Simulated assay, not measured.
Amino acid sequence: MTLPSLGSLVPLPATEHPALLAPPVAAALAGWAHAAEVAVVEIDPDLADTAAMTEAYDLPLTASANCVLVGGRRDGEERVAACIVRADTRADVNNRVKRLLDVRKASFLPTDRAVEESGMEYGGITPVGLPAGWRLLVDARVADVDVAIIGSGVRRSKLLLPGRLVAALPGAELVEDLAVEVG
């Protein structure tokens, strides 16, 4: 099987390079049927943010998918979701996500909490290996890209995989219009 590739990044089989992954990501990939189709690419951790990375490695913005963690409460119950959206869009937290979670108000999880509970580094949080009980909402536009670049759980690398597989992650819910266009 050929690994996905993108821009000037050098793809390596993700399951063979666990040192480039956060522990929960490595564990999730080890048990996933599609793991052989996932590549990991090493990057400069100072370039982990989307704008810097896409420019430095000659990547299309539409291939980059961001994972944002959102939470809200209803009847004393907290509801958390990871929202995966293309980098040329932003999660519609105040409307679409709020309705999907069925909460009065949805907001981004505080950074320290997101890092602690996910077991991943800020700037590297990914939909792969998130805690059980968190919903995984995937904007349909992410599933349409040939190769998506997502976090690996650490800032020094990224994962490459077909967009259709982002939507096939365990527990993923494919959602139309989860995000709105930027600009």
Rank of each mutant, 00 (worst) to 15 (best):
S5T: 10
L6H: 08
P11H: 07
A14L: 02
T15L: 06
E16Q: 09
E16N: 07
A19N: 09
L21T: 11
A26G: 01
A28M: 07
L29D: 04
A30V: 00
G31M: 02
G31R: 08
W32T: 14
H34S: 12
A35D: 12
V40E: 07
E42A: 15
E42W: 00
I43L: 01
D46T: 07
T50N: 09
L61D: 09
T62K: 07
A63W: 04
A63L: 04
A63V: 05
A63E: 03
S64F: 00
S64V: 14
N66A: 08
N66F: 03
N66P: 12
C67F: 04
L69G: 12
L69A: 11
G72H: 01
R73N: 11
R74S: 14
G76P: 10
G76H: 01
E78A: 14
V80N: 11
A81H: 08
A82C: 04
A82F: 06
V85T: 15
A87W: 00
D88T: 15
D88Q: 13
R90W: 10
V97T: 12
V97M: 00
R99V: 08
R99T: 15
R99E: 14
R99Y: 07
D102S: 15
R104H: 13
R104P: 05
K105R: 14
K105H: 15
K105P: 11
F108T: 06
P110D: 15
T111R: 08
D112P: 12
R113C: 08
V115T: 15
E116C: 06
S118N: 10
M120Y: 13
E121K: 04
E121Q: 14
Y122W: 01
G123L: 06
I125T: 06
T126C: 14
P127N: 09
P127S: 10
G129A: 10
G129H: 05
P131D: 13
P131R: 01
A132G: 13
G133H: 01
W134T: 09
L137K: 03
V138H: 00
V138G: 02
R141I: 05
R141S: 15
R141M: 08
R141T: 13
V142N: 10
V145L: 03
D146L: 05
D146C: 05
A148P: 06
I150A: 08
S152L: 03
S152E: 12
G153L: 03
G153A: 03
G153W: 03
K158Q: 08
L160Y: 07
L160C: 13
L160F: 12
L160P: 13
L161D: 00
G163Q: 09
L165I: 05
L165E: 08
V166N: 10
A168E: 10
P170A: 12
A172F: 07
A172V: 05
E173N: 06
L174W: 04
L178E: 10
L178G: 12
V182N: 11
G183R: 07
